[in-house]
């Protein structure tokens, strides 16, 4: 079989100095800048008012009672249950007792909820704006440049990934265009940022993506748009139907069986 002749393209070595290195340096500097911009823009978590704390923790108390009821004697459990169920149903722990029974406020009009959304928006903007700018910059100045040849062979599938912006059908996929180098930098600079800024830096995109996918469970529980009165009623029902068991029942026998002297 005849050997496929190796493609050679004579490139100006200046391409290397004036495209490859500038793109990389600009990417790193933007990452650093984004980190500090996020740190600066981060809104401090808003302090909760005492009634709000009371509302949340009283609900947690009921959950604690339900989960750990086995530690209590039946009589003390019954007393607590009666008290909490009654208080939950009357809305004694509500932040705004007069609003009991009304529908949950629209999260768009709730200022506390807006705050959280603004924070998320800020984070997204810090990601999108610089990336759009750099992409535009590269497109304007370096589009269509083939800047580097990868030192290993690749199949034809990589052509669309590595030669974005270069519409040459027959070129070997080893050749890489400037826009593809930019895309590679976006995903490949993670460890550089970790080294420069510490592992929990705001420049890392992975973290932001993770954060968007799985918001904290606690945030959902007391998040905006959830009617606390409904939560209390649900918890009261859970408590009321709980079948109580006492751990101390038969603990002597269990202990005697397990203790070996």
């Amino acid at each position: 079989m005849a050997q496929v002749p190796v493609q050679t393209i004579h490139r100006d070595p200046q391409l290397f100095y004036w495209i490859l290195i500038p793109i990389t340096v600009v990417m790193i500097l933007t990452g650093v800048l984004r980190h500090y911009a996020t740190v600066l823009m981060a809104s401090t978590p808003k302090k909760q008012e005492l009634p709000a704390i009371r509302e949340q923790r009283s609900l947690l108390r009921g959950i604690n009672l339900r989960v750990n009821a086995h530690n209590l004697s039946p009589s003390s459990f019954e007393t607590r249950k009666a008290y909490l169920v009654n208080a939950y149903e009357n809305g004694a722990f509500l932040k705004e007792p007069e609003k009991k029974g009304q529908a949950a406020p629209n999260p768009m009009t709730d200022p506390a909820a807006m705050e959280g959304m603004m924070g998320m928006m800020k984070g997204n903007m810090a990601m999108i704006v610089p990336q759009t700018l750099i992409m535009g910059w590269i497109n304007a100045f370096f589009s269509g440049f083939v800047i580097i040849k990868l030192p290993f062979p690749l199949t034809i599938k990589f052509k669309s990934m590595l030669q974005a912006g270069v519409a040459t059908r027959d070129m070997d996929p080893q050749w890489m265009s400037s826009i593809s180098w930019y895309v590679l930098c976006i995903f490949g600079l993670q460890s550089v940022f970790n080294y420069l800024l510490g592992s929990d830096n705001a420049a890392s995109q992975m973290q932001q993506q993770m954060g968007q996918m799985a918001p904290g469970a606690g945030a959902q529980m007391f998040g905006p748009g959830v009617d606390p009165d409904k939560q209390f009623r649900g918890e009261a029902e859970n408590l009321a139907v709980l079948a109580h068991q006492y751990t101390l029942e038969g603990v002597e026998e269990r202990l005697l069986q397990s203790v070996k002297v």
């Binding site: 004697s73 039946p74 009589s75 006492y246 101390l248 029942e249 002597e252 026998e253 202990l255 005697l256 203790v259 002297v261």
Partner: peptide
Amino acid sequence: DTGLPPPDIKTVERLNEA
């Protein structure tokens, strides 16, 4: 009040020994 029967005297003695 606790809903539990008073402990058996034999069990108590064995617990004391243990």
